[in-house]
């Protein structure tokens, strides 16, 4: 059994550690609130930008724009958003596991890493990084996102890479974060294929906008438009006027869009902005997740320290008590020996 002084020393050191973890928990909690607000503030922008991009892309037809087309090549660029510091539980290892398992799918991979932890991990394992950004994982700025976004966009636009993925940690709650892989480019747009297959009358009005781009594809548009006309006439006969009107009203805002200067030009301007916004959102989400993970990890470390302290205190008291008992019995024994 260890003596009382050793136990006292251990209690003291555990208490010191507890103080530190508690302070870190509180710091993380305070920063988390700010990070959460920032992440929430950028959501409307990103959502709206994506929506706009989708409607513009739908109207220029995603097969026309070189940046939206699926490419045959298999060279993939990954942006891995990790933390600068540890002590955040399984945050970094979860993220890196997700990234590594997804990267196995492509034979040729390039990586841009943010955050010291991720950078060090891949460096130690001998991966060649395209670039890395460190020092701002807890408080990402929009200008950082702009630089990263531009670099990624450039790499994709020049054809150096055929697909772009972002690996980040999505923030659900301070206790719950999930690493995710998101394909950013080429953009997967839902609804484009459907619209292209079943054009309504609005395509006629829009045709002027497509004339430059769709000259080689003209037969497709021509035939499908006539088919749609035939269909429209059929529905006119079978359905009463009221429901037809509402149907037309539902479709109108989706189908007629004036895009100026031209869909291609707007897409060329929109895509870099979209890239920036996606990167910014990933950085903010990851920052919030990192702080949330750290807060939770430090919270449980503080509780653990408390458990250890109470166990040690119990032990210490036992040792102290038995020492006192022994002393008394020695004194009593001594007195009896004198008589």
């Amino acid at each position: 059994m260890p003596n009382a002084r050793d136990i006292r020393r251990r209690i003291k050191s555990v208490k010191n550690i507890q103080q530190i973890t508690k302070a870190m928990e509180m710091v993380a909690a305070a920063r988390l609130r700010r990070a959460q607000e920032k992440a929430a503030a950028c959501l409307p922008y990103v959502d709206k930008l994506q929506q706009t991009l989708e409607s513009v892309a739908a109207h220029s037809g995603n097969r026309f724009h070189p940046l939206l087309r699926k490419r045959a090549g298999k060279k993939a660029l990954y942006l891995i958003v990790s933390a600068d510091k540890g002590l955040a539980g399984a945050y970094t290892s979860n993220l890196l596991r997700e990234a590594v398992s997804h990267m196995k799918q492509s034979s040729d991979v390039g990586m841009i890493v943010t955050g010291r932890k991720g950078r060090d991990y891949f460096r130690r394992r001998g991966y060649a990084l395209v670039n890395s950004y460190v020092g701002n994982s807890e408080r990402p700025r929009f200008s950082d996102a702009g630089r990263i976004g531009q670099e990624i966009f450039h790499a994709f636009a020049t054809g150096e890479y055929d697909a772009v993925y972002v690996v980040y940690t999505h923030f659900y709650s301070p206790m719950n974060q999930k690493p995710m892989v998101k394909q950013v480019l080429p953009l997967a747009i839902e609804g484009v294929a459907i619209q292209a297959q079943a054009p309504s009358g609005a395509w006629h009005k829009l045709k002027g906008y497509f004339q430059e781009e769709d000259s080689q594809e003209k037969p497709v548009w021509a035939t499908s438009a006539t088919e749609a006309d035939a269909e429209a006439e059929e529905t006119d006969e079978s359905v009463d006027a009221d429901s037809d009107d509402t149907q037309a009203a539902d479709e109108a805002p989706d189908d007629i869009y004036i895009v100026e200067p031209s869909p291609t030009d707007v897409l060329n301007r929109l895509l870099p902005r979209y890239m920036e916004a996606v990167v910014y959102e990933a950085l903010l989400q990851s920052a919030a997740s990192e702080l949330g993970a750290r807060m939770t990890a430090m919270g449980s470390a503080t509780t653990n320290a408390q458990d250890i302290i109470s166990e040690l205190t119990l032990n210490y008291n036992k040792v102290r008590q038995s020492a006192i008992t022994r002393e008394i019995s020695e004194i009593v024994g001594g007195v009896e020996a004198l008589q």
């Binding site: 706009t52 409607s55 513009v56 805002p253 007629i256 869009y257 004036i258 895009v259 100026e260 200067p261 030009d265 707007v266 301007r269 929109l270």
Partner: peptide, 19 residues
């Protein structure tokens, strides 16, 4: 002011995207 000139938007404008 769009990249190719000014645009004014009034009530019931047609759907539009401009840079």
């Amino acid at each position: 002011r769009a990249v190719d000139g000014e645009v004014g938007i009034l009530y019931n404008h047609a759907p539009l995207v401009v840079a």
